[in-house]
């Protein structure tokens, strides 16, 4: 696990940014999300953990409607998620997403990856877009790789570019879907450090991860999921030292002591 530490400032605002209400989703016979209620406040960092197949990635992907839901409502900044179309595209631009497998555009350079959304969605001026892209790439520590193609970068570098690409849109909230699960162990920290920095700067974040160290140090709240349900929600200290549910105790006993 990571040793990166962070000083957490208390989140003062209680403004609700992402609200999920009794969300249900099935994959065929499998009930992957069961009556999910979750509210994420502006500036809050929520870490979602749980065993494989518990629905945590699906939950993350429903927030920008990469997965549709069967019932319930999801609202971002007070607006319910629209149907597929122009309005949904506009909303997605405000929700940054970082994937497990990076998904950088393979036919474009690193710089072009970070510029594309600014140019085509935000209709930004090319020069300004490039300046912003270079600044963001410097910020995540891959400024020198700007003219390379994604395949020429290491996994950790690619994931940091992916974070820069999402940040370039000026998102209200960032979703991280297991951002370090496809990385070599020695590259995990460089990505987590960028995420820690983002959390410190007050970005609203939903992070699905297996990195308990990150959950401990950066999260305001830990959401534990199992079998499609939110089993437990608590502050990280409380959750890791004194989990209430048996399911969480069982999960933690398997991952923390070896």
């Amino acid at each position: 696990m990571t040793n990166v530490s962070v000083t957490k400032e208390d989140v003062v605002t209680s403004d609700e940014l992402v609200v999920l209400k009794s969300v249900n989703k099935h994959f065929g016979a499998l009930h992957v999300l069961q009556d999910i209620d979750l509210t994420i406040a502006r500036g809050e960092v929520v870490v979602v953990i749980g065993p494989s197949g518990s629905g945590k990635s699906t939950l993350c992907r429903t927030i920008n409607r990469l997965e549709t839901i069967d019932s319930g409502t999801i609202a971002i900044d007070g607006k319910p998620l629209p149907q597929e179309g122009k309005q949904l595209a506009r909303l997605r631009a405000d929700v940054g997403m970082v994937f497990q497998s990076f998904n950088l555009f393979a036919h474009k350079t690193v710089l072009e990856n970070v510029m594309l959304g600014q140019l085509k969605v935000r209709k930004a001026d090319r020069k300004q877009a490039e300046e912003k892209a270079r600044a963001l790439l410097d910020r995540v520590g891959v400024g020198t790789q700007a003219d390379k193609y994604p395949a020429q970068l290491s996994g950790g570098q690619q994931q940091r570019v992916a974070i820069a690409r999402a940040l370039a849109m000026g998102p209200k909230v960032m979703l991280f879907d297991e951002p370090t699960s496809a990385l070599d162990p020695e590259m995990i920290n460089e990505v987590l450090e960028v995420m820690q920095q983002l959390a410190r700067e007050g970005m609203t974040m939903v992070v699905v991860t297996h990195e308990m160290g990150f959950a401990r140090s950066a999260a305001n709240r830990v959401v534990f999921m199992a079998d499609g349900r939110i089993v437990e929600e608590a502050a990280p200290d409380q959750f890791f030292s004194n989990p209430r549910s048996d399911r969480a105790k069982d999960f933690l006993s398997k991952i923390l002591h070896h």
Partner: peptide, 22 residues
């Protein structure tokens, strides 16, 4: 890979843009 289109949709590109640009 499906992820390419998903990433393109996630930054707010419309369907014609996802297809034409990515």
């Amino acid at each position: 890979p499906v992820g390419q289109a998903e990433a393109a949709r996630a930054i707010g590109l419309s369907f014609p843009q996802v297809l034409g640009l990515v």
